[in-house]
Design a protein around this nucleic acid. Structure first.
Lengths: 361, 361
DNA sequence: TTTATTTATGCAAACGCTTACAGAAAAAGA
DNA sequence: TCTTTTTCTGTAAGCGTTTGCATAAATAAA
């Protein structure tokens, strides 16, 4: 390309004047509103931010100007000036599961009610350079961070804690008691489901765990074992299969449990997706649910009620988990000195049709 | 609260001086880097933005200062000054499905490769005031917008087109040929799957549609019908059941098809989720897949390979759909005058084990 | 060499907003 | 009525960048 042409393009650049939003349409600024309402721009700012000390009819006038001009604040400018971006970062592994979907739904609802924007960061696959990554987040892009089931947490938490950047963990126990988290009563959920099966009359109950590096998996297992013990039943390690939280884990787990010399009459999977795998394996073995084998899950994702037979499961209040996390985060953002909360939401046993009394009782 | 106390708090407010990021940790600015490298801040900016006219050893020096100080640009400021936010908005209904998950994965990958941030907007449930909403998006928050399967598109498109705001539609045909979209060959996918069944020997093939207000549903249906016609088979309306794209739709669709006086030997569901419903209904009817009934899906979500038997289906390149949409969007953002592209990605028939030759052949 | 060009750097203004500060207006006390 | 206090509004500075313009340094041409 010739130099001349280059210069020509140069000259064509828009003048620095009025901001055009990159779209050709110039956007209304606080100045325009001020002019329209016949006040200073500072007053407009006060109205927009709901500050005190504005005469009510002035406020009216400004508000009217705002709507008539269709003014909406420029977050970047606001953020630059005031140090708030009105955006929250959400860090997740991936988004494909309805588990994730429901949590995000809750987050999103609560956030938009509070007029906050949501920046999404997924960590799937990519090995991120934690330091830089987190730096980016806290470098004013967002005012706070929500982490759902974070993987190598230590890497984040160090930077986060050092800079006193507000964050909340979702469905993760954190490193210690001083980590702000929102979790559910996993132990109790495991206990309740198991007790339910016991009360139906089951004596041999198979259990398929989640990924055992997750505390929630351990809690569910512990709840299961505690219920057995409390009812005077043996805790047979043969009945526990280490799963993955994915469907194939449930399938092979059930296969292996059913091949036991003394197979269980009920199988408790640590999440619904694995329970679906269990159902498949049970059927493939020529058995019927619930008459031959009872199946119970965990999570209560929306599909759970749609399969046949509808799955009895332990409901996690996923959407509420997200909502609660946002509440906590906003709280921390506004009162950084507040003591750290840990919020524990209750699970509920949802009884549907995948469990029945065992055959031989 | 007493006035005195109020004043006291007033006095306690941090001085306006050095920006503290709201976290207590002051962040490094372009100025710090300039000082460290012994150049002007303008030069630092040039280096950061890869502009020409910077001596290579100066560039080195600046780069070194940047890494040593851990500097990362402040997007808000950059946006304010330069009119670019380096963020893209993503508008989706909800996130629970693996359909969505895979598209988002592609988007996210491509976006972060291009150093862009992702702002998430979900429209589920909430009846949004379109105008204000869209305004918000384009008010400098984002530089472009990606819409996945948008619902009441007209509302958005008007504002978007008026302001020449860059956007791309994903898996939606748009209003006319002048809408930039990324779609897949739905018609061809429907055709291919049907032809495959015909070639296996099937003569009566049931079809369960998606939501018929979506063009993609119509295309799949048309592909199915065309294949029948091309092979000299009758197009029997009895064999077409109007579904929903959700599992129960598939279940009841299959039930109804199987109850026909002359039931089909194969069922083609317009997406995998409904195909799962079909499989369930088939089994509940005491029939086997694929020996009694062949089942074929559409989408190739990850679960499709995990069910038993693994589902034969038409793969949509979902992740690539997202990736391609980002490519198009960035292109439009950088060259607004370019003619509008419509990108059509090919579907592929994935043959697994849910189809077989019909029994009576 | 001297002059014209090209390359490299710095200065300053602007982006749209928030907020400390100062001053005006209104309300409350004397 | 005149202070004092309180409420209201405007001015100006600053947030961290980008970028037009001016100028300096380096290079090429004469």
């Amino acid at each position: 390309m010739s130099k001349k042409l280059d210069q020509a393009t140069q000259t064509l650049k828009p003048p620095r004047g009025r901001r055009t939003n990159g779209t050709g349409l110039s956007s209304t600024t606080i100045m325009d509103v001020a002019r329209e309402a016949g006040v200073s721009y500072a007053t407009v700012s006060r109205v927009v931010n709901n500050k005190e000390y504005v005469k009510s009819d002035t406020r009216e006038r400004v508000l009217k100007a705002i709507t008539s001009l269709g003014y909406v604040v420029n977050q970047q400018a606001r953020s630059l000036a005031g140090g708030r971006s009105y955006a929250v970062g959400l860090l997740v592994r991936d988004l494909g599961s309805s588990y994730m979907g429901e949590i995000v739904k809750g987050i999103d609802d609560a956030l938009s009610a509070a007029q906050y924007n949501l920046m999404l960061y997924t960590t799937h696959r990519r090995k991120i350079k934690e330091r830089i990554y987190v730096n980016n987040l806290i470098q004013g892009m967002t005012d706070g961070l929500l982490l759902v089931l974070p993987e190598n947490l230590e890497a984040y938490l160090e930077t986060l804690d050092q800079t006193h950047f507000p964050y909340v963990l979702i469905d993760h126990q954190g490193l210690d008691e001083r980590t702000p988290v929102v979790i559910t009563t996993n132990w109790q959920g495991g206990y309740d489901a198991t007790r339910y099966l016991i009360e139906l009359g089951h004596r041999r109950i198979g259990f398929i765990t989640g990924m055992m590096d997750m505390l929630s998996s351990q809690d569910r297992l512990n709840g299961y074992q505690a219920a057995l013990r409390d009812h005077g039943l043996p805790v047979d390690p043969q009945l526990v299969y280490e799963g993955t939280f994915y469907q194939p884990g449930g399938y092979s787990g059930a296969q292996s449990l059913l091949q036991l010399p003394e197979p269980p009459t009920a199988i408790f999977a640590s999440n619904d997706v694995m329970a679906f795998g269990v159902m498949e394996a049970v059927r493939d073995a020529g058995l019927r649910i619930p008459s031959d084998i009872s199946v119970i899950g965990f999570d209560n994702i929306s599909q759970a009620s749609q399969v046949a037979p509808p799955l009895t499961t332990v409901a996690q209040p996923l959407e509420q988990l997200g909502r609660e996390a946002v509440r906590m985060l906003l709280m921390r953002m506004n009162n950084p000195e507040q003591p750290i909360e840990r919020s524990i939401l209750p699970t509920t046993l949802i009884i549907r049709q995948s469990c029945d009394v065992p055959r031989n009782v």
